[in-house]
Computed example of a mutant assay.
Amino acid sequence: MLNKSSGCPLAWKSKIRPQQPADSLRYVTLDLASDSHARAAIEAYADSCSAELPWLADILRARLERLNRSAERAQDQFAGLQEDGAAPMPLTYCEHTARRLMAFACMCARAREDYSAAAWDHVMKSFDRMLVQMR
């Protein structure tokens, strides 16, 4: 079992070392309270399993939402995204995944004849500002 709940890098807590096969890896324990990579992994897992296991996705998202409400997570809210009287909407923990998908969307848009470089530049700058503010 590979354990990351202490916040240490994976290789430090595991018998598996860099550049060794990880065939025996079956379980990973993640510390949501202190590891932003764990939060990104749980968010991605909830998104991935939501169609087949909506109850599990709801439980995982509820846990992330409780972390968002805690004092130490308050900086992860983007005040620009909120409805009247609602709390700020949390942004993704999967910044790298979000950036990769936006770059892919932009690449697909460039292939179309109605592509607008100015419009995509505006979208990408706004998206980047939101992600930077999330850190």
Rank of each mutant, 00 (worst) to 15 (best):
L2F: 12
N3L: 11
K4N: 11
K4I: 01
S5T: 14
S5L: 10
G7D: 10
G7I: 14
G7S: 11
G7V: 12
C8H: 14
L10Y: 08
K13S: 00
S14R: 02
S14L: 05
K15V: 06
K15Q: 03
K15G: 01
K15L: 00
I16K: 01
I16L: 09
Q19T: 10
Q20P: 12
A22Q: 05
S24Q: 15
L25C: 11
L25A: 09
R26P: 04
R26E: 06
V28A: 02
V28G: 00
V28Y: 02
D31R: 13
D31V: 08
D35G: 06
D35K: 12
R39K: 10
A40D: 06
A41P: 12
I42R: 02
E43M: 09
E43N: 05
A44L: 14
A44C: 07
S48W: 01
S48F: 05
C49N: 05
C49K: 09
A51S: 11
A51D: 03
E52Y: 09
P54N: 03
L56V: 15
A57C: 10
D58G: 10
L60N: 08
R63M: 07
L64D: 04
E65G: 02
L67E: 06
L67P: 10
N68E: 07
S70N: 02
A74F: 05
Q75T: 13
Q75R: 12
D76Y: 15
F78I: 14
A79Y: 07
A79E: 10
A79S: 03
G80H: 09
G80R: 13
Q82W: 02
G85C: 07
A86G: 06
M89Y: 11
M89F: 13
P90F: 15
L91I: 14
L91H: 03
Y93S: 04
C94W: 13
H96P: 00
T97P: 01
A98H: 10
L101V: 02
M102C: 06
M102N: 04
A103N: 12
F104I: 00
F104Y: 07
C108N: 10
C108S: 08
C108M: 11
C108D: 05
A111P: 03
R112L: 06
R112C: 09
D114N: 11
D114H: 11
S116P: 14
A117W: 08
A119F: 15
W120I: 06
D121Q: 13
V123D: 00
M124L: 14
D128M: 04
R129P: 00
R129T: 01
M130G: 09
M130D: 01
L131T: 01
L131K: 04
L131D: 00
Q133F: 08
R135Y: 07
